[in-house]
Design a protein around this nucleic acid. Structure first.
Length: 586
RNA sequence: GCCCCCGUAGCUCAGUUGGAUAGAGCGACCGCCUCCUAAGCGGUAGGCCACAGGUUCGAUUCCUGUCGGGGGCGCCA
């Protein structure tokens, strides 16, 4: 299971080795990976190593580049090396060798993706909806982006613990229990339990506006539940069970799976101990009969300066931050992760910074290290409706199922128009894959941190840079292989020898796939992978338009056929990392 | 008031964490199917990267300030 290196890693290693031979060993402690050039006249890949070396050595980077170049050894992948401009080292690659390299990459079980996470565990906390309500499009981003991280980390060799930290505790249960006793419609509950729960929850808000005593009743029910009251506990469990079943149906369609679902309630018993420990350590203090963590005005992290985090309310109840601290401790103890990733809305930035900083202080105070785990709040931009923010209580929500259904139905209309020859059941399957894939891709293809104004047509577009284009491009590859009648798994893919410019462009994109996955994982930006697959698809289609694979006599060009098979494999890997199942035809 | 994000083509957004001549989709206009899927391909038009300084071989990217937009700041999550 030897690892196939990326072109970026391989070429930068050549430069580093040459620099060492030129007497520059140990000058720099980090290696800047080679990157593709933005213009073919500068070759295929470039190294900017000489700039950094030149800076460190206080020498002209151009001279450094020349020296390094003179020490560079021959490599089968490299046809020619130029030094250009102020000190760029440009690599002109050998297309046939690159194709052979791609053949090695795609043949490996890891698709050639660097296994940076081997022997490491990451906990990813994502989706995390609240119980007793159906998921709406506000839950979409955490679910889809979080799942993309899940897949990216796995592709990079990490052991992933995907944890759905559901909101299964809190004051909403008191409200729901009051409504349940007041107005439960048994028939509706039997027919559609989650819809009835949601109705009861919304109804409570309406009633409470006219009858303030209901709020007290709700608080009393919440307190009873927290005290372990049998009836309320039974109801609470029912609510959770119904909700999880509802969530599961959406997750299945979206291709989302969790390893554990440990909601807030799981940590209830640990909360008093957390607060006591923080009080004992002098990190938390009592203030107005609540317990808070105060961050001083000279705290090294500017964002938390003069901010306070309440960890126990004056009525003795615990909060979100308390649970988060308990959850953090549990995850460390249980899985010893190298990283913990929290995928939430950007509005929680301050909250998580407070939790992380409080935890560091707390842990240090116990003589423990905080260096063995990286905490990453991977926030995403807010999704808003054109009319403003959503609220189940106000009733202005778009349910996730409705979005998915609409996506599938729009895809179905297109398929019926374009592929009427396919059997009905296959068209239905294609519509599902295209519809769901489009929703996933629409979210993943932009920078996660950008805000989004929800727009049906934009979200469900089937033109341009969308999942459809990628699926279509992959299907074109499979179609050629099918037509030739070869078994792609037994085909000799080492015979690809790109000659035409469109072939060369394509094979370079294929070679780059593994390094893009690594970058997307590291930087938490699935859109970089989307961009690259889109670019690959464009190149495939340009190649397709310019180069025939199956000649007029019906015989396939072996080199081009291998190139098509390699492209199909890269699409398969890439789309699977995005959670979009490929289609053999469409 | 303090803190965090954002400002790139008519619209929606990318931009590999500082690299060479800033890209894509949509929309507009002009072309391409007797040929492996036209859900495709080729071409044209469209830019003071909000503005002003600074850092250096090099800035859309980093720093400072200004203007404009969004968000957060003690008992919700």
């Amino acid at each position: 299971m030897s690892q196939v290196p990326t072109l970026a890693a391989l070429l930068s290693q050549l430069v580093v080795d040459a620099a060492d031979r030129a007497g520059h060993a140990g000058v720099l402690d980090t290696v800047e990976p080679a990157t593709p050039t933005n213009n073919p006249k500068f070759g295929d890949y470039q190294s900017n190593h000489a700039f950094r070396l030149g800076k460190a050595l206080r020498t002209n980077p151009r001279k450094v580049a020349e020296t390094v170049k003179s020490e560079l050894t021959d490599h089968p992948l490299v046809d020619r090396i130029d030094v250009a401009g102020p000190g760029f080292i440009n690599f002109h690659l050998n297309p046939t060798a690159v194709a052979a390299h791609v053949a090695l990459q795609t043949a490996s079980s890891t698709a050639g993706i660097p296994q940076a996470g081997a022997n490491h565990t990451v906990v990813i906390d994502y989706s995390s909806p609240n119980v007793a309500k159906r998921m709406h499009i506000g839950h979409m981003r955490s679910t889809i982006i979080g799942n993309a991280f899940h897949r990216l980390y796995e592709a990079c060799g990490w052991t992933v613990v995907a944890d759905n930290h559901i909101g299964d505790w809190g004051t909403q249960f008191g409200k729901l229990i009051v409504s349940w006793h007041k107005d439960l419609d048994k028939e509706r509950f039997a027919a559609d339990p989650i819809a009835e729960l949601e109705r009861l929850y919304v109804a409570f808000g309406t009633w409470a506006e006219e009858d303030p005593s209901l709020a007290d009743a709700a608080r009393a029910e919440t307190a009873k539940l927290q005290a372990g009251d049998e009836d309320n506990t039974r109801l609470w469990k029912t609510f959770i069970e119904i909700s999880l079943r509802e969530f599961e149906s959406v997750y299945q369609r979206l291709g989302v799976e969790f390893d554990v679902t440990l909601g807030e309630s799981f940590y209830n018993d640990a909360l008093p101990g957390v607060v006591d420990s923080l009080l004992d350590a002098g990190i938390a203090i009592e203030d107005d009969s609540a317990v808070i963590i105060d961050f001083p005005e000279d705290h090294p992290v500017r964002a938390v300066r003069n901010r306070k985090l309440v960890i126990r309310k004056s009525d003795g109840a615990f909060l979100y931050g308390t649970t988060d601290l308990a959850t953090l401790e549990y995850r460390l103890k249980e899985w010893s992760p190298r990283e913990i990733v929290y995928v939430t809305d950007g509005r929680q930035q301050l909250h998580f910074t407070q939790v992380f900083e409080a935890w560091k202080t707390w842990r240090t105070s116990r003589g423990l290290s905080t260096d063995d785990v990286a905490l990453r709040h991977s926030w995403f931009g807010t999704l808003k409706l054109p009319q403003g923010s959503m609220s189940t209580r106000k009733g202005n929500v778009i349910r996730l199922v409705d979005l998915l259904d609409e996506a599938v139905s729009r895809s179905r209309a297109v398929i019926d128009a374009k592929s009427s020859d396919l059997p009905d059941h296959e068209r239905a399957a294609i519509a599902e894959a295209v519809g769901i894939g489009s929703v996933r891709y629409a979210d993943l293809s932009q920078n996660p941190q950008s805000d989004v104004i929800f727009d049906w047509d934009r979200m469900l577009s089937l033109d341009g840079n969308t999942a459809v284009f990628l699926l279509y491009s992959a299907a074109r590859c499979f179609s050629i292989l099918r037509k030739v009648g070869v078994d792609a798994s037994t085909l000799d893919l080492s015979v690809a020898a790109p000659e035409h410019p469109r072939e060369r462009e394509l094979v370079l994109a294929l070679a780059r796939f593994p390094e893009v996955v690594a970058i997307a994982r590291q930087s938490h930006r699935p859109n970089l992978l989307c961009d690259h697959l889109f670019e690959t698809a464009q190149r495939l289609n340009r190649f397709y338009a310019a180069c025939r694979v199956i000649q007029k006599d019906g015989i396939a060009d072996p080199s081009r056929l291998a190139l098509v098979a390699l492209t199909g494999r890269v699409f398969r890997s890439g789309l699977s990392v995005l959670g979009i199942p490929v289609l053999e035809r469409m």
